[in-house]
């Protein structure tokens, strides 16, 4: 049995202009409510996808697309179930951002809140795979100073839980 579970697509939302219109707001609220009730629901595409795979006591969340003002709330909601069980012993979260093209201040704030919650529970949230624009945004916002950033999810897993990596390599 392969060590890595098959990736699951958790959420997809479409990018729409004029997100602040009243109708849009209501549509978005319904979308989020549905996502919370049924995490595997596929919704219209907002330009951001997340898939998860478990590796031992860690979970790697592969994020792709843009984590911007439109998708940040969906991103926050998606993290909720993983954060709930993120402790010192299990469900350490590695956010694989190698597929992220852009993250806004609102998206960065979601990351900060996630890290704070994990810390209070004894858990950790790290990011990995930052490149080009997103890497620069982390540096400009100084998030690189408050977040553990790894070159790849593999490096993050190795640093966080060496036995897990060994298990993965032996799979």
């Amino acid at each position: 049995m392969p060590f890595l579970a098959h990736p699951r697509r958790l959420f997809t939302m479409s990018r729409r202009p004029n997100i602040m219109g009243a109708t849009e707001q209501h549509a978005r609220a319904r979308l989020f409510a549905r996502a919370q009730a049924h995490p595997l629901t596929t919704a219209p595409d907002l330009g951001m996808n997340i898939t998860d795979r478990r590796t031992g006591n860690a979970v790697v969340l592969e994020v792709t697309g843009r984590v911007d003002n439109d998708s940040a709330e969906a991103f926050r909601l998606l993290l909720v179930p993983f954060l709930r069980h993120c402790t010192a012993d299990e469900n350490r979260i590695v956010l694989d951002f190698s597929g992220v093209d852009y993250i806004s201040s609102v998206g960065l704030r979601v990351l900060m809140l996630a890290a704070k919650q994990a810390k209070t529970q004894g858990g950790t949230v790290v990011v990995a795979g930052l490149h080009s624009v997103v890497k620069e945004i982390f540096e400009i916002s100084r998030f690189n100073l408050v977040f553990q950033c790894f070159d790849s999810a593999r490096d993050a897993l190795a640093a966080a839980a060496p036995p897990t990596l060994a298990a993965r390599e032996g799979a």
């Binding site: 201040s105 960065l108 900060m112 916002s141 100084r142 408050v146």
Partner: peptide, 8 residues
């Protein structure tokens, strides 16, 4: 502030 400071 930096953004990281402002939200933490």
């Amino acid at each position: 502030y930096s953004l990281a400071e402002a939200v933490s």
